[in-house]
Design a protein around this nucleic acid. Sequence first.
DNA 1: GTTGTGATTGCAATCGGTTGCAACTATGTC
DNA 2: GACATAGTTGCAACCGATTGCAATCACAAC
Lengths: 343, 343
Amino acid sequence: MADVALRSGVHKGTVSRALNPATRDQVNSSTLERIERAAASLGYVPNVMASGLRRSLSMTVGVIIPDLTNPIFPPIIRGIESELSPRGYTALLANTDATDSLERAAYRSLLERRVDGFIVGTGLTDHPLLAEAAAAGVRMVLVNRGTSERTPFPLVTGDDASGIRAAVDHLVALGHTDLLHLAGPKDFTSALVRAAAFKEATRRRGLRGTTVTASAFSIEAGRAAMDQALQTGTRRWTAVVASNDLEALGAIRSLRAHGLRCPDDVSVVGFNDMAFLEDFSPPLTSVHVPLLEMGAEAARLLILGVETGSQTPVTVALPVSLIVRGSTAPPRDPRTLPALAYS
Amino acid sequence: MADVALRSGVHKGTVSRALNPATRDQVNSSTLERIERAAASLGYVPNVMASGLRRSLSMTVGVIIPDLTNPIFPPIIRGIESELSPRGYTALLANTDATDSLERAAYRSLLERRVDGFIVGTGLTDHPLLAEAAAAGVRMVLVNRGTSERTPFPLVTGDDASGIRAAVDHLVALGHTDLLHLAGPKDFTSALVRAAAFKEATRRRGLRGTTVTASAFSIEAGRAAMDQALQTGTRRWTAVVASNDLEALGAIRSLRAHGLRCPDDVSVVGFNDMAFLEDFSPPLTSVHVPLLEMGAEAARLLILGVETGSQTPVTVALPVSLIVRGSTAPPRDPRTLPALAYS
DNA sequence: GTTGTGATTGCAATCGGTTGCAACTATGTC
DNA sequence: GACATAGTTGCAACCGATTGCAATCACAAC
């Protein structure tokens, strides 16, 4: 910038004003043009760090998620980015593998970079970091999963309860009366909310509902939980509502290993409607969650908080919808169930 | 930091030395302890921007990709991050949608943030930005896809040619002698390399090989290209080697729409081995590319370049391997081909 | 001719660390 | 006791912008 000032024969303060859109009108148009020419010919690139240092603003947002390879996160992050980049913000990404130590490290590292705010998608129910952040006056928005306690931060999720209700209604309409819920780990609020909604929905409709809990939101955990469900005595349920698409996929693998077919023997509904579900075997019926929009809304909320300087802990529950594909069908006549099912 | 200095009764220069691991041994251990206590009690968080300003180092790396929701990128980025974060670097993410203007904007925006280097996964064959970056002395590593011209930047890819050869060999072993290559768009080098390898492999083995080119590396484009291939006269080929898993998926959709089954009527091989392929219908045989490792290697190369201050344009081709699943099988007797196939 | 007004521009402090250099202290050596 | 040496710490300039305040200037009004 000093070079530009020298080249155009003005003080660097004037250059600063000329190059900043907000103060551009304070400088004479002929000077402005001269400065702009000088800047262009010198290939001047402003230093956001220096500007940020002075204005204590970094124009960056920290995004903390457990694992980018979990298919729900890429769309969320794209959504976030779609709102950030037009406004000049950039996303700093950190994965935590849901590890407490990595999570602290990521938080700290982003804090050291003076991010203007955080978008957090880890969603562990109890989180000391949140209280800490709140106390420190950090701007933050929770996405996808909330926390058990009240937090001072806004939250953007899908409407979990209504998604589960839609899934149950769909199965009921097909003729199922005995359902299994493949719940997610208890330390995630989304899992808790969905499990509660399942209980409530089956009770209301007078259905039999059983629940098994997977140890993680993953294919492996879903499969293990399903294995367990299939090993305990006589199976009565004819359909499964999973808390997550990955668990649903694991469940289908387990069913297949036990000689049961989906949807012929057992119907399965997933949750999130991750990409490519229609190409799966069978194409998975799932609750569509507007992940992109979720990320975008979270980013909007965060920027609002950053720019107004205050946040209200609203909860935004985005509408979801059931996408019916090939993994759900009317139940078979129980008498024709294959023997293996009872093993 | 001034507060910490005040509190511990030393000069801020000393605090700086005490808190920096590299200069920590220059300060007396009792003073050090006093400073650390003061820092902790004050909740001091160093400002990386300020430090970066002085040292002209930002400890950040810009990652430019076309689209995070393309399933090959999340693993690559995880790989990158796994190398960056232990060394104190953070990734700044930017999507470009393969748009030239967005790409320039992303590059510029990251440059303004004074990233220490770039990892670029866009892979358009001709790229003015690369020449520009090279001229500006920017550190950069290309990942997944290279460029047609020689660039002064290192490149990390999978071994495309050997992957295609493995796919062809596998199909030959099954008894196929007439293959179709579903190529990727010509403006991506990976597509070009794979197409050339296909030509070469079929020629060497004395097979008939046809090529159709998809307009993008996507399901839709793959499907469209396949539709086209199926509409042109009599089909002789019995297997398809796609340039990419998404194209393969699109091809399978097209086949299905034309009343052809995979692998019964037509075998299909994908490329990249993206996640969840084994749950697809049919489970897709694909060339496994070590995406995580690719990202990690790119990050290592970049950090090396940043820290040594010089880069050599090496090309690292990571070994790939064919993962055989359910989408490939021996060809049917041509006479039993369903009539639809000839439509 | 004087004064007021608004538009430009210069000045210099500041943001929060880093670092070469100088100063000071304690210890050891002859 | 003088002096060299190593270990600590203070000093102050600097990184590259931003911005409140003051200075300057041109022009119009009186």
